[in-house]
Amino acid sequence: MSEILTITTDEVVPDREAVFEHQGIPAGRAVAAEIEALCTAAMEVFRQAAAPAGVLAEISKADFATLYKGDGQNEDATPVDEIYPRAKHLALFAVTVGEEVSRRIADGFKSKDFVDACMLDSVASASAERAVEIVQQRFLERATARSPAATKGEHRRLAGVPTGETPVPQFSSRAEKILDISSTGGDRRSPVDGVLAYSPGYCGWDISGQRKLFEFLKPETVGISLGESCLMQPLKSVSGVFIIGPKAIHLFDNCYSFCGRCTTHNCRDRIRALDAGG
């Protein structure tokens, strides 16, 4: 059963840094006052135009196993294949910042107002990503309130490298660090669960997986539709699965067959952020 989520515009207004990142400006780089001003103006337009919405549906591992296979177009081995069997909770999601924002961006381009349209585009993209974070955090809080954190033993078992594979030293030490099981003495933290989102179109999960995801989740109820080419409308929408479990289940080495073609290696940042507490 899908749950319609209430998401406010205030919640999804992105950080300036996230917007600048979408403008291709490296993190930490000084930004000229006029570009700051453009960003402020775009944020204001965004506040007027945004209509964020989202939908969430918990899903069993068995159902997810079928859904994830999709039309059989995924890569042979993917991170999600390894991660979800060790998860404690799974939920499909779709979020959007609404159609009006995209309309304003398109209008801006049509009237050759590239500067403002492009900044608004970046605000909207960063906001869609922010919406994912908001919903994922809510799901984590709710799920962990419902079920107690796993014991250290469980964490250790769940964090194990996939059976049949030789443990990678780097993997093991990072897992130990996250689980806080290698430190000696003192007041050890109990291991906490973490959540990450994985989306069709990323890391070996073929984008055609959107079809099965939509069949199950029915995001049409909040105005998100799927076209023949698996493109969602409104454009500034994101879909995927939230996977909750001991943080260490999300650790993997980026040496899948498709990682060589990856231009972002974004999984490293995501794992780092999780490690830092997310």
Partner: peptide
């Protein structure tokens, strides 16, 4: 050369227009 980024390019193009 990564010395300026998208906004600077767009602002310059607007001035050129």
């Amino acid at each position: 050369a990564n010395e300026v980024f998208i906004p600077e390019v767009l602002i310059a193009a607007r001035a050129m227009h």
